[in-house]
Design a protein around this nucleic acid. Structure first.
Lengths: 156, 156
DNA sequence: ACAATTCACTTGTTGAATGCAAGTAAATTT
DNA sequence: AAATTTACTTGCATTCAACAAGTGAATTGT
């Protein structure tokens, strides 16, 4: 019998495994992506993602990410039905990881051949991620945007 | 009815999603890690990983990674029962991603508190990953080691 | 003020993926 | 030639994800 506050047992102490057990499922990083790049903050916005997450799975992933300390939630200031989710510092530290995933995909012809649906600006940025010699700059831009309550792909 | 060579349908064209659909399951990156950091090359070596992957799951993940072009296999030169798996260029391009996962975990007190089982050298390297200002150097070291038929944590 | 809608969820139910135990054929070792 | 090792496969139980439908509280529309 398990108690509620019992820690989940880790498969191993390897830092790669630690990371994967924190965010390495099919959906968690997509939610994080939506917050970083698209400024999504509420349950309904996450539900409407391109990939079509199921509502029960979304609830489970949000709870898991919150438990891991990657996101936090508080009541929405303008609408008491809503919760506002945001990235913690621990979540913001995933920016370099997301940048690397984008960069990896962006280099591949396999991705380039399916990348038809993005806007020219989005595709330009993906290629920039894939070819830049200064990832720190990109990371800082994303961090600044999110910190300002905005997001990387905010129109300007 | 599906034909064998039919492409799996992507949930979306987002490069983050593309990456996650390529390697974003519970086991794939652990196999990649074993190759990069620990020089594992055969089925039996992967089976004996700390995390205890099931034999059928290992077979499925190896087949998937090969299909994605991240690893390749060829008969072992010294033992015809064995297959030798190795990272393709596409697989080597995952080094920066693995480095970021290690760096993310390495920064957290949550990981540091469970990191008892590693050797002092391993723990030193994890902290280096987490604090370096020159990730490119680390990435190059790993790449060089693997290219030389060795691996990052090879004793010397 | 009251009904309809929106919001963040939960609750079944089904299908798929994972985990475990056992087995197999080929190659190697003893 | 028997025992062992190797890279798998197969069958089954369990866990997880996908889908459909609901729930109660807050908000909007009339």
């Amino acid at each position: 019998m398990k108690t509620d506050d019992e820690k989940e047992e880790l498969r191993s102490d390897c830092p790669v495994n630690f990371g994967l057990e924190s965010f390495g499922d099919k959906w968690s990083l997509l939610i994080v992506r939506d917050m970083m790049f698209w400024g999504k903050r509420t349950y309904g916005e996450f539900l409407r993602s391109d990939e079509g997450i199921a509502t029960n799975i979304l609830a489970a992933r949000l709870a898991s990410l919150e438990k891991e300390g990657i996101i936090s939630k508080k009541p929405h200031p303008a609408d008491r039905r809503k919760e506002m989710y945001s990235l913690t510092e621990k979540g913001l530290e995933l920016i370099p990881l997301l940048v690397e995933i984008v960069a990896w995909s962006g280099k591949l012809v396999e991705w380039q051949s399916v990348a038809g649906t993005g806007s020219p600006e989005q595709i330009r940025q993906v290629k920039r991620f894939a070819t830049t010699k200064n990832k720190a700059k990109i990371i800082q831009e994303i961090r600044d945007a999110v910190a300002a309550g905005s997001y990387f792909f905010a129109p300007r």
